[in-house]
Design a protein around this nucleic acid. Structure first.
Lengths: 162, 162
DNA sequence: TAGCTATCTGTTATATTATAACATTCCATA
DNA sequence: TATGGAATGTTATAATATAACAGATAGCTA
């Protein structure tokens, strides 16, 4: 699995071509859905687009507000159903410590990942560090837990905000 | 900082003397508050006691339900204020992926920690693994983030539930 | 010890996050 | 083109958390 180029080295390169970044994510999502034989409907596409467009972790009700700008009968289940779908298909992640959602850089397959969150500007970088993941799995096992899933979220300051 | 004996090797030793475990945590909390020149009031003590008594991550509104058994005018702010106090004084942890709270094994000082959570029985073990913490800090820095805080929560199966 | 002040608590209201339940529409395909 | 499963619409409500202000209390200090 190779990392998509869009959001990478975000902390260094805040000004990238964001339209291209969103477009690539959507096109990748379409492929993934086709491969998984699941429907990439307009709502699902639209929610994913809003998430990628924000380029930061976004709250479910902020997604709802954006949806309502173009579809005045949007309600919470509309958003949460799309989020569930996108999470299940590994197209987005939920950031537990923020109750927020963000586009997945390594989309389409389950994978380990770690999130680096700047507390000042809220930019996030997704790491996919196998060494970290393996060490955690090993240490968990040493303590009796057979690990199935890890949440690793690091809060701090990015170079631009220090 | 030495780990308190109460909740340690929990996955192996489900049946320990739980009264002693709670009593030790409360006595430790009293010391910590005295050292920090903050008040260990009845409400704070009672909430901490409820958390320790549960011996698993407990939800804020479950704490509220227990408080109401003895104090019928308890309201959410009562609980959340006590939780804030206990969190600030490093006497409990919040488990982000469960919206739940648990007593801190290494209480009284800020410290790194990782949580091992059995998805079947909800028992938690707190790890204080410096190797994991340092590796994460280092990798974060490699990716540009100066880490201030880490959330590490591992979901899996404990020996009793496999 | 009386009074002052900061802190803590009580109380009401409301914000925020998420799901249940059921009706209706859509769409792939037989 | 009929049909059954999936997706969406809609209403209601559950679950988690905070704002705001009034009142009580503890610990200091004159």
């Amino acid at each position: 699995m190779t990392k998509l180029p869009h959001r990478s080295s975000e902390f260094q390169d805040i000004k990238h071509n964001h339209k291209i970044c969103v477009a690539k994510a959507l096109s990748r999502a379409k492929e993934v859905c086709h491969k998984n034989s699941v429907r990439f409907t307009d709502q699902r596409r639209r929610v994913l687009e809003i998430i990628w467009h924000s380029h930061k972790p976004i709250l479910a009700y902020d997604i709802l507000r954006k949806l309502r700008q173009e579809k005045d009968n949007a309600e919470p289940p509309t958003v949460y159903r799309a989020l569930d779908f996108l999470l299940n298909n590994h197209l987005i992640h939920r950031i537990e410590s923020l109750n927020a959602y963000i586009g997945c850089d390594y989309s389409g397959e389950q994978h380990i990942s770690q999130f680096l969150i700047c507390v000042a500007c809220k930019q996030i970088t997704e790491m996919e560090d196998e060494e970290v993941a393996l060490l955690i799995t090993q240490k968990a096992l040493d303590n009796g837990l057979q690990a199935k899933h890890q949440t690793v979220e690091v809060m701090g300051l990015c170079p631009n905000c220090r």
